[in-house]
Amino acid sequence: MANIRRWLALLLLMLLMAPMARADDTGQIQFHSPQQAAQYQHLLQEIRCLVCQNQSLAESHADLALDLRLEIAQALKRGESPEQIKARLVKRYGDFVLYRPPLRETTVLLWFGPALLLLCGLWVVWRVIHRQESQA
């Protein structure tokens, strides 16, 4: 009984602390409209942090990510469109900052490579089945 109560207490504590895990600087920025706040959140998900490369700007706690978040927020408030902001970041850091890279010559393999591999696999499977059938 005492054990269960201890577990419940721990669970309650964890639930109470959950909002803190998400608390960061983004809550302090005052946007002009809910749309702008939504644009901001969306941009942060789409842009990669250059310091911790497998995190988006929204997730990263790196110093540079913090700076870039502020830069994006200020640009949005100045009235820049998300496209303009993205274009500026790409010009500065390259396509790498985008989690969804644009389709161009150098990224064709990145976009269609998996499908190509799948086709190769299907071809091998088809050959194997075909051979077994002809032997039977």
Binding site: L50, V51, L64, D67, E71, R92, Y93, G94
Partner: peptide, 13 residues
């Protein structure tokens, strides 16, 4: 001091 100029150069570390 704020790392603003570095951003123009794409400095990330």
């Amino acid at each position: 001091p704020q790392g603003i100029l570095g951003r123009d150069w794409g400095v990330y570390g």
